[in-house]
Computed example of a mutant assay.
Amino acid sequence: MITIRNAHERGRASFGWLNSRHTFSFGHYYDPAHMGFSRLRVINDDSVAPGAGFETHGHRDMEIISYVLEGSIAHRDSSGNEKVLTTGEFQLMSAGRGILHSEFNPSTTQPLKFLQIWIEPEVSGGEPGYQQKDFGNEPGLTLVVSPDGAEGSLVIKQDARLYQLWLEQGQESSLALTSGRRAWVQLVEGELSVNGERLAPGDGAAISNESRLDFTALRPVRALIFELP
């Protein structure tokens, strides 16, 4: 079963320096029909003005992934990490028993666009952690996040996997799902067919009771594929 979450149906937030689209309930946007999917709790499509950003704030017991679509992020946290992520890079911050951090757009001219993703951990508490990597843009599926660090992926504290999908128009790829597993597809760019269902940019697809996902790029595609318990 595939249920489409259309981009235009997402929640909205606008604060001048930040424009955001919320796939699931977040902040002032509350929709009891969209509280998350499996352990996937947040997908925010954020645009941050030059020189602006999120002041220091805290999290705990959440796996927080950032994926930079355009521009760069300046990251600082209470574990001593001071990093810059550029376009195409992934960041995975494990909040564990508690961490403070800030995320800023260091450019004075270029906007920052990124996806902010939260996944609930399998076990609460533990040491906070920070990981960062650019996985390139090889055609097909590339494993980005996994519980065991397979194929050089970032390690998450949940039985979940995240793939990036790049396809040129007309190219195809597929992903097998074991029984009981679910998936979420988030389309960043292009037009994508998933088991015959069409997605446009910003659309998401909640998938359950499917043994295989067949992807066809109707236009050049960049997407994220979540495999979830």
Rank of each mutant, 00 (worst) to 15 (best):
M62Y: 09
E63K: 06
E63L: 09
I65L: 04
V68K: 07
V68W: 12
L69F: 02
L69Y: 09
S72W: 06
S72N: 08
I73T: 04
A74K: 11
A74L: 06
H75R: 06
H75N: 08
R76I: 00
S78E: 03
S79Q: 15
S79K: 14
G80L: 11
N81S: 13
N81Q: 15
K83C: 06
L85V: 00
L85F: 03
L85Q: 02
T87W: 04
T87I: 03
G88K: 05
E89M: 13
Q91G: 07
S94P: 05
A95V: 13
A95C: 14
A95Y: 12
R97Y: 12
R97G: 05
G98T: 03
G98K: 12
L100C: 07
L100M: 15
L100T: 10
L100V: 08
L100A: 11
S102M: 00
E103F: 07
F104V: 09
F104H: 07
N105C: 14
S107N: 08
T108E: 13
T109V: 14
Q110E: 15
Q110L: 11
L112P: 01
L112G: 01
Q116C: 03
I117L: 04
E120N: 04
P121N: 08
P121Y: 12
P121H: 07
P121W: 06
G126E: 11
G126C: 09
G126P: 12
G129Y: 09
Q131D: 02
Q132M: 06
K133G: 05
K133S: 13
K133M: 11
D134F: 08
D134Y: 12
F135H: 04
F135T: 01
G136K: 01
E138R: 12
P139K: 00
L141E: 12
L143Y: 08
V145K: 04
V145H: 00
V145W: 04
S146V: 13
G152P: 00
G152F: 00
L154H: 04
L154E: 06
V155M: 10
I156Y: 02
K157W: 01
D159P: 00
A160F: 03
A160W: 01
R161F: 01
R161T: 05
Q164T: 15
Q164A: 09
Q164L: 06
W166N: 04
W166T: 11
W166Y: 14
W166G: 02
L167S: 00
E168V: 02
E168F: 06
Q169V: 02
G170E: 06
Q171S: 10
E172V: 14
S173K: 02
